[in-house]
Design a binder for these strands. Structure first.
Lengths: 173, 173, 173, 173
DNA sequence: AATGAATGAGGGTTCATTCAT
DNA sequence: AATGAATGAACCCTCATTCAT
């Protein structure tokens, strides 16, 4: 990975996250990265290839976020960690997460599959705690963190920590 | 409103909802509506004007959805109606709501202000029911319906009615 | 000539004179005249037909300006009247004359032929006054009034009367 | 400056001079230059940028024409050189000068300021020669060369050298 | 006589992409 | 690896003009 390659990826992430994939031209990316436009195509073949490179690179972040939850054996801890997930997001990764949300709607990129391990971990946790409908409980939490993530990235005034504590109390955590 | 004007609006709504605003060309809209491209501009001035016309026309749908909740005096009913809101959405309006979500991310159109009356109605309802943190409770429900709406419009397999009943039980409704 | 026809002609003259023929759209003319765009074509067939109508209507002004000079028998008077011609131009006719100059360059409408009677009258006058090169003298005066007209219509600061007096003195008039 | 850039400039100058700036489409320029239309915008940003490039490039021609006159110390020579200016115009520059005249009327590009050094040189020359109204004399000559230039570029039958000699005699030159 | 809906061609401009260097 | 010239298709939009009413 050349220095220029990284510059391109960084510029593209920022612009895609801010303006959207379609609305960002490769020429704008090149200008932003201080690089010739042709270089983008030499390294990433396509505009789509550029996007894929960003997403692939970011996949690791997803996993890093999940692994700690999925490996947890204490069911209450699974729930707590999931709910507090949004607080864990590094501000440096802000653009990456914003891009995820944007793409979910702009292209029909389903991030649903990525959530599957989380859903299973949650369902399992609620089962262990003898909740009546572990699947629905799990689903509800996923809806919550989706809504909260969306709100935070859109600049809502919600205090995430306060909100999270509030919900944790509902689960006696 | 001529027949062709309506055809344009209808085609535009469908395409904007499916492919996004930026990604939909005016020529595609025209072709889809069976109309010359120039006519779009004669009637709606701009591509943006076309979008605005769709949004303005849809504003009524928003209000129709809210008025019944905001006018309700029984606090439990307020909560129930809000939670069941997503079930109320007419399948004919599917495209309109999908467009709303898309625009929230594509352009930075904040639909947050539109939610304000709902937030107040909910906060008020939880106050009457002597909940400890009415504001947080209200916020939580808004996050839930945002997440649920998002999931449904994205083609999730969630069964909304089941989910709603499940949640209502948590509020003893 | 309907009232609306006149409104169209008036609006067109103003816009053609200000912005040029090509740069003025028929829709702008219609809007300016407070008239539907179609009406222009009903009355004048073409955008060119509209221009022709304006020019035809203005032809009379040309002739009115010339007839007094051409009919004059006193050679010195011929010269004087020609030189003072630009001062005679009514301010109400400003747009018409500006349009003439614009068209001379925009389309290749030669106004040269229209000058022919004037050229002959001048040549004749200088002949009578025993000038050595009556034709060149006549041509020179025509060049002068062309230059002066151009300067005045372009908003030059030249004082035309002072200038005219200055030149008349050169011809001992 | 690539070969294609020059081809574009050349084609544009010819077409702008012949048909006018507004009436010449960028696609016509591209076709004439044997170049893709997009290239025009890559090199000159705008249609206006293209015009500006032509004008800037031509500015040198203006200066080359003037500098010899303005630097002249012999007043009679100043007058002679000014009057004979139109004869100096290279036939290769025909299009450029035609464009100047066209733009004076099409856009409201005042070429008046460019004439200022000439006006001053002439006024000064007539002063030295003890003419009564040096300013008016200078102005008159400017009007004359403006008219003559106009006539020549419009294809008049005037014989410029003969005309110039005729006038020079009036100034005893 | 007059309107306003409607069109097809063309306007200037941006786009993702290719290629020679 | 990197550039910058070059392209052709598509973009949003305006134009002169036609036609039903």
């Amino acid at each position: 990975m050349t220095e220029k390659q990284e510059k391109i990826l960084h510029a593209a992430l920022e612009l895609f996250a801010r303006e959207g994939f379609t609305a960002t031209s490769t020429s704008k990316v090149a200008k932003h990265a201080g690089v010739s436009e042709g270089l983008i195509f030499r390294h990433f073949v396509n505009k789509e290839g550029l996007l894929k490179a960003i997403l692939d690179e970011g996949e690791r972040r997803f996993k890093a976020l999940f692994v700690d939850i999925v490996m947890e054996s204490d069911p209450k801890e699974v729930i707590r960690k999931t709910i507090e997930m949004t607080s864990q997001i590094d501000k440096a990764d802000y653009n990456f997460w914003k891009l995820q949300y944007k793409l979910k709607w702009e292209l029909e990129v389903s991030s649903d599959k990525k959530m599957e391990p989380l859903r299973m971990a949650l369902t399992n946790a609620f089962s262990k705690l003898n909740y009546e409908s572990p699947q629905l409980e799990a689903e509800l939490i996923l809806l919550y963190i989706d809504g909260l993530g969306s709100a935070l990235l859109k600049g809502s005034t919600i205090h995430p920590d306060e909100m999270n504590q509030f919900i944790l109390k509902k689960y006696n955590i």
